[in-house]
Design a binder for these strands. Structure first.
Lengths: 129, 129
DNA sequence: CTTGACCTTCCATTAACTGGAAGGATTATA
DNA sequence: TATAATCCTTCCAGTTAATGGAAGGTCAAG
């Protein structure tokens, strides 16, 4: 399977697949003409990457998860630890974003949004620390 | 005021302040010895930037907001439009993160997290698209 | 007068790609 | 068979918003 098909099967852009090879996450074979050839293993890895990245795991997380995936003797605890840390990171981000959202919508509620120059949003932002 | 004091007053690292000057967000004066000199205006801008960035506005948003801030004839509607778009972006991110979180905690709930090699998280991630 | 703190510029790196150029290989069409 | 369209290759640069560090100038204290 060439890179185009691999892209279709995984939903990953070709560029991204080449990049993943570059950084050593996947190692497709090569045909005589230099084209990458993706076998079952490589496809599996790409699907794995697509899913894990879609869930927000970092590339380094993915590298670790792939290593665990290849290690048939791994313990599920190792995987769970990575997932747990990731959930905590996500929760933190959600908290921060929610705080931003609240502050902003509070400011917006007090902004007339008309043609006059007075703007509570800018007024607030221009306050010193 | 030198860059060190400016950093103290705004909470921004010196590196970041230099960077903001680089990309044209702030234009401090220069003393005879080449040191940056931050007057009231520059300090105001830096405080503005620190707050707006803290609320997640992008650098380009900040550039626009600063321009509006300098424009005494601006309408509050212009500012509100930027803020509104930003809130929508934040909401979208929160939705995506929440979905990730749900998927992951669902997977984790089904993972024993013990020493056995069977791991529902990896099993799920290894499923084809 | 020298030590340490503070300042300068410049270059490289981060994360995770994305865009595009230049050119070789393959496939479809005329 | 010619050629055009598509697919593939590598390599270089750019993105966001800084951050790290080197090499070196300046200043204030003792």
């Amino acid at each position: 399977m060439n890179i185009g098909q691999a892209a279709d099967h995984t939903g990953l852009p070709e560029k991204t697949i080449r990049y993943y090879e570059d950084i050593g996450l996947v190692t497709p074979n090569r045909a005589a003409n230099g084209y990458r050839v993706f076998g079952e293993t490589a496809l599996h890895q790409l699907n794995f990457l697509a899913k894990a990245r879609g869930l927000g795991f970092s590339i380094e997380d993915c590298r670790n998860l792939l290593a665990l995936y290849d290690d048939t003797a791994r313990s599920s605890a190792d995987v769970k630890a990575i997932a747990k840390a990731h959930v905590a990171t996500i929760d933190q981000k959600i908290i921060e974003l929610s705080a931003m959202r609240d502050t902003l919508s509070h400011l917006m509620k007090h902004c007339a949004g008309d043609n006059r120059p007075d703007c509570p949003i800018l007024n607030e932002l221009s306050q010193g620390k």
